[in-house]
Design a protein around this nucleic acid. Structure first.
Lengths: 204, 204
DNA sequence: GTCTATACCCAGATAGAC
DNA sequence: GTCTATCTGGGTATAGAC
């Protein structure tokens, strides 16, 4: 560790505390109420930071939203890295579905963080609009690699179908306030994956 | 036609003109920018109606949004009625998929009116929150009836899968700004329907 | 770095002339 | 029925003391 990193580390500890609290609060509010309804006053209050102080950490509101997106991107990468340790592509893809199934109650209550945020961003104009594809893209590319490794004929399309089912099921789960819908659809997705794995093995 | 209808019909013609323009403008703005971003000032301007006059037709903003939802519900019923004239359940379900496929460009640009609106409503609180399931429910029930008539074992789950794929694909199409994704997934859905029809026929 | 006070704008909604 | 002017609240952002 160099001197410059050392000195920078200490003041940043306090700074990071508030900054992280702001991003965490914003992430929660964006998830529950959407990007548009997430006001700086609400975020500041939830993070227990004075409103005026928010602008020390984020130049504009868009910067804060962008930080929320980046946080999700990072968590997605971590999740996919963990799932990547599964021994077979089949297990890894099933793990992805199970991850959403485990969150069924949360999804029924507040919708899917990824799907909801992407939809919100796609309807804005400005720099944030371009970020709409960021989060789904990471999952889509990962799933495509798994299907390819599985030996499925059209891996990209199969991955798109999988992600569409997951995000669509989450949307319906939220609209109907019914976690059972999510559990059911994720079980069916696991079956689809098994069928594809069996089909690819049979063609081999 | 009775006298009361006659006299009521004339003044209502002018009334309906503005009211309908307001609902049409609101529907368009809600579709493109979401419920939260749809302000009465924007709606009034787009409908060429003075802002203050909006409150003659709608007591509150929520009433106007509610009218937008009702309009969609009506159009969905009409669409499903038309699709219902298809000779086989397979044709009717394929028609549903084709309907979304035909709108690929619009979906890429502004997202799915039904999915986006439902997601928006689910994140509000108040009376509108309860309407979130209204639009998807109509499609889901219709599709369930078709799968049942097709002789598929678990018709409700199959219908949920179908609708999830459609809405999820629309969400991705919008996030990636890529109409091709929608076309591709709708073709694949048609194949799934064919497979299910063949499976049900084989089991008969 | 922190926080109060506030500028400035735009939202939903209303009053009241016509 | 129609429309202008306006009230009130809450949004983003800034100024400036500490």
């Amino acid at each position: 560790m160099t001197d410059s990193e050392l000195v920078a580390a200490r003041p940043r500890a306090a700074v990071a505390g508030k900054r992280e609290r702001l991003v965490a609060s914003a992430t929660d509010l964006v998830h529950r109420h959407g990007v548009q309804a997430t006001t700086l006053a609400l975020v500041a209050k939830a993070a227990d930071v004075p409103l005026g102080n928010v602008y020390y950490y984020f130049k504009t509101r868009d910067d804060l939203i962008r930080a929320v997106v980046d946080g999700h991107a990072q968590r997605i990468d971590e999740l996919l890295a963990i799932l990547g340790r599964g021994t077979t592509p089949r297990d890894r893809l099933a793990g992805l579905a199970r991850n959403w199934a485990d969150a069924a109650d949360l999804l029924a209550e507040s919708g899917c963080p990824i799907g909801g945020l992407s939809a919100d961003l796609a309807r804005l104009d400005g720099g944030l609009h371009e970020c709409a594809g960021l989060l789904p893209r990471a999952v889509l590319d990962w799933a495509t690699r798994q299907f390819r490794e599985l030996g499925v004929p059209d891996a990209p399309a199969e991955a798109a179908s999988l992600l569409a089912r997951v995000l669509g099921a989450a949307l319906l789960t939220n609209a109907f306030h019914d976690p059972a819908l999510m559990s059911q659809e994720m079980r069916r997705i696991e079956r689809t994956i098994d069928d594809l794995a069996a089909g690819a093995a049979g063609a081999r």
